[in-house]
Computed example of a mutant assay.
Amino acid sequence: MDNNLTESVNDRQNILNNRYALQQAERHLELGGILFDGDLVFTKQQVMDIFEIGDATIERYLSSHDTELKNNGYRVLRGARLREFKNLAYGTLTNEGTRTSVLGVFSFRAVLNLGMLLTESEPAKLLRSRLLDIVLDVMVEKSGGHTKYINQRDEHFLSASFQEDNYRQLFTDALDNYVEGNKWKYGNFTNLIYKCIFQENAKEYRAILKLAEKDSIRDTMYAEVLTLIASFESGIAHEFEVASKAKGEKLTQKEARNIISNFEKHPLYKPYIVDARIKMASRDLCFRDALHEKLEAYIEAVPEADFEKFLGEKSRSLEEQLSDPETLAVFKRLKDK
């Protein structure tokens, strides 16, 4: 994983977008810095001292990873802002030159970002190791140690799960009423929907998440994926009914498969399918260390909002949600619809 941090912008950004990990890192790493604009700020000289590197090395990384470092808080101070900083940092800028008219400074995030990039620094290597330990500790603490069901900490999971269950019934009823075949058709057609949405069948998905036979696949799915599955099931059930009634008899399984194939290609669903693939692939790799190889092209850095969703104040275990009277009231309203 250490090598991944130096090579993968997504792996680096997944740490930098996790404010809970950053809070712990700031507390435990004790890198120093100067408090400026509510953030710890480091001069180039301070960063050189932290990582035991020279000016040329920093400049090389600032050039090769300019956008990434700027996005994570590296900036150049000029004019009034620089004068404010000089006054605040009085006595610490001897190596930068007190008369300089521009000064590059690193936020705490940018220092960590650089530390995850540097390959020629032993202190940077140690920092990466400590960061990974901190991230793991935070994940265990915030998730209660159950990342397999981290999806359920989303406040929208319960409603999405319940609604999907309702549309699942519509879909199985449509298979009964409008499609020929034996009991195996339920699993086969469910797998077709899964492959349309995230390119894996149930067996493949189960293996990637290391689920036991007794584990429910849908209990591990994110709310957005469940909602898209529900939308597919509802729409396909309707198409089965329309096609069967037009034909005057049940559809063959080949005819039903063609309907699902055409449904997947509908332009209405394309952005939703892409979004579901990005969320599943990116979140599972970040939170569950599970790689969906067929979705590898969709992996992105997990946004800060997702860390709030699954680790933040609003995130709660399913048991906690079910013990909340307000949540139960919403659940009852859905049931009564």
Score class of each variant (00 low, 15 high):
25 A>W: 00
222 Y>N: 08
207 A>N: 14
253 Q>C: 01
59 E>F: 10
114 L>D: 01
184 W>F: 10
233 E>W: 05
90 Y>E: 13
180 E>N: 14
97 G>P: 04
22 L>S: 03
261 S>T: 13
41 V>E: 01
34 I>D: 03
125 K>G: 13
186 Y>S: 02
94 T>V: 11
299 I>G: 01
118 L>E: 04
264 E>H: 13
26 E>L: 07
265 K>A: 14
293 E>S: 13
236 I>P: 01
279 K>E: 07
199 Q>M: 14
45 Q>K: 10
241 E>N: 09
321 Q>E: 04
324 D>R: 07
80 A>E: 12
163 Q>I: 09
280 M>G: 02
165 D>Q: 14
27 R>F: 10
108 F>C: 04
254 K>H: 14
223 A>D: 07
47 V>I: 09
182 N>R: 07
270 K>H: 14
296 E>G: 08
185 K>L: 06
109 R>E: 07
35 L>T: 14
223 A>P: 02
15 I>S: 03
208 I>T: 09
296 E>H: 10
259 I>H: 03
305 A>D: 13
267 P>E: 09
167 Y>M: 10
336 D>K: 15
43 T>P: 03
208 I>R: 07
115 G>C: 07
188 N>S: 12
98 T>A: 08
228 L>S: 06
154 D>H: 00
80 A>T: 12
211 L>H: 04
226 L>T: 00
312 G>S: 04
68 E>T: 03
32 G>R: 06
305 A>I: 11
324 D>S: 06
54 G>L: 07
188 N>Q: 13
100 T>L: 09
288 R>Y: 07
244 S>C: 08
265 K>M: 14
203 K>E: 15
60 R>L: 11
113 N>K: 11
115 G>M: 04
242 V>T: 12
102 V>I: 11
133 D>C: 09
42 F>G: 02
261 S>H: 14
325 P>E: 09
299 I>A: 05
251 L>K: 02
160 A>D: 00
134 I>A: 02
220 T>A: 15
242 V>M: 08
236 I>L: 07
14 N>R: 03
129 S>C: 09
202 A>Q: 15
222 Y>T: 06
27 R>W: 05
303 P>R: 00
234 S>Q: 14
40 L>K: 15
317 S>D: 04
120 E>M: 10
291 L>W: 11
198 F>K: 02
119 T>D: 04
97 G>N: 00
263 F>Q: 04
46 Q>E: 15
106 F>Y: 10
9 V>C: 04
116 M>G: 03
148 K>W: 06
156 H>E: 12
215 D>H: 05
30 E>F: 10
151 N>C: 14
5 L>F: 11
267 P>R: 00
159 S>R: 07
126 L>A: 12
223 A>F: 01
141 E>N: 14
169 Q>H: 12
82 L>E: 01
150 I>G: 00
147 T>L: 11
185 K>P: 03
315 S>T: 00
7 E>D: 14
121 S>P: 03
282 S>N: 05
244 S>T: 06
45 Q>T: 12
263 F>W: 13
10 N>T: 15
64 S>Q: 15
141 E>V: 12
323 S>G: 09
81 R>W: 08
81 R>M: 13
87 N>G: 12
74 Y>K: 08
201 N>F: 09
130 R>L: 12
149 Y>D: 04
257 R>Y: 11
79 G>A: 08
311 L>V: 09
37 D>P: 03
59 E>A: 11
182 N>H: 10
276 A>D: 07
230 A>D: 04
318 L>H: 06
282 S>A: 04
130 R>D: 15
141 E>I: 13
